[in-house]
Design a protein around this nucleic acid. Structure first.
Lengths: 212, 212
DNA sequence: GGAAAACACGAGAGATCGCTCGCGTTTCAT
DNA sequence: ATGAAACGCGAGCGATCTCTCGTGTTTTCC
């Protein structure tokens, strides 16, 4: 009994159980159902039974793939984050300081708004005031990196400004973006695009006097 | 048995039960406790037992004064709204069109920020994404009147602008205010005041090009 | 002083939710 | 083919929460 017998370890950290194709399909199915339920009822009010029902499986099946309710949100969040990085990873970071501010802001806003429109559950998970422990940490981490990116983008424009002021300006920009995102998500079609334009206006007019 | 026997009406609409001074004191006590618990845990996660415990009374006593949990939030919200009207009723409405925009915006922001800082539960109740039926209606009503006020304030400055655009501008202003309020409440002392100044800057720079 | 009403208590009924467990079915490696 | 492991089911356990009820105390009114 040498070969594969260390399978007996009771509470191993992570036993990345062998999955069949069927299992992977179920996981995707369950995550999609969870996204739908989270969007309509929020995280806390969403019951695991409701998620299972939405996915057309039994509660027991759900817990075959997720140890608990929070893990569903975590996994959903991580998949969204990785898609975000994959698609828009360079939306903020590598900006040529010679780029006009208008162009940089416009591009960043367009990319993030587009992502959030295609994945409305992202806003629900990251903005909901009812998120639990680990998810809140993930939210704080995302917020911190976002602030850092905006700071990095702003600093070249504000050479002789105290760091604390730059940070505050970045916080204000992200706050404006969140408020704008809420308005954008609340509308559709032409009206939605009008709000996108307004959001860009707010950011540009707020920043314009600073970068001269 | 003629006189006061219609007391037997089973499910009378509103039986404004006679209250003793002790009862009024308990109600105030319970609402204060509820405000505290709502602030720290949010509405949904706040348990009625926790509110009773915070107030130093039994759960039964709580239900002597409130028919259900939602009624506590409703009453709390109504008292806050009436205090808001009493103290800052004219914060937005009767503005002389000759007043400089800077002054009007600054005064309105100062008043509302001050109110929200003194009653942080107001933000929790009105911004929480986990609020129930009746409370959400109250929130919508407040939002609608707020938008209306801002529209009224904006219209004289924007004579030849389509109504839809004015409304959208008002929505953006209120959205900016909410985002700023969140940042202001998250900080204290000197930093808080710096965020108040930034909020005013954002609003003024957004509106300035429109009113020329 | 005495009856009625308001106030206060706290155990627990009733409902919901997260999650488990035992057992049957399907899939896969050998 | 066959044993093992992954998958699937759904009743129900245990914990929690809202709200009730029976009982006892204080206040008010005459």
């Amino acid at each position: 009994m040498p070969a594969k017998s260390e399978r007996t370890a009771k509470e191993a950290k992570e036993q990345p159980r062998r999955r069949q194709a069927r299992g992977e399909r179920r996981i995707a199915q369950l995550l999609e159902a969870a996204a739908s339920v989270f969007c309509t009822t929020g995280y806390t009010a969403a019951s695991t039974n409701a998620i299972a029902r939405e996915a057309g499986v039994s509660p027991g099946t759900l817990y075959q793939f997720f140890p608990n309710k929070e893990a569903i949100a975590i996994e959903l969040g991580e998949r969204l984050m990785s898609e975000m990085r994959r698609t828009y990873g360079e939306a903020l970071a590598p900006v040529d300081p010679a780029t006009p501010l208008e162009e940089a802001v416009g591009a960043a806003v367009d990319r993030f708004i587009d992502f959030n429109c295609r994945h409305p559950v992202f806003y629900t998970l990251m903005h909901g005031s009812d998120i639990p422990g680990r998810m809140a940490e993930e939210h704080d981490a995302l917020h911190a990196t976002l602030i850092g990116r905006v700071e990095a983008l702003l600093t070249p424009f504000l050479p002789d400004t105290p760091a604390a002021d730059v940070r505050r300006t970045a916080e204000v920009c992200v706050g404006i973006y969140k408020a704008g995102l809420e308005l954008v998500l609340a509308h559709e079609g032409e009206e939605r695009e009008a709000y996108v334009r307004e959001l860009k206006n707010v950011l540009l007019r707020y920043l314009a006097p600073l970068v001269d």
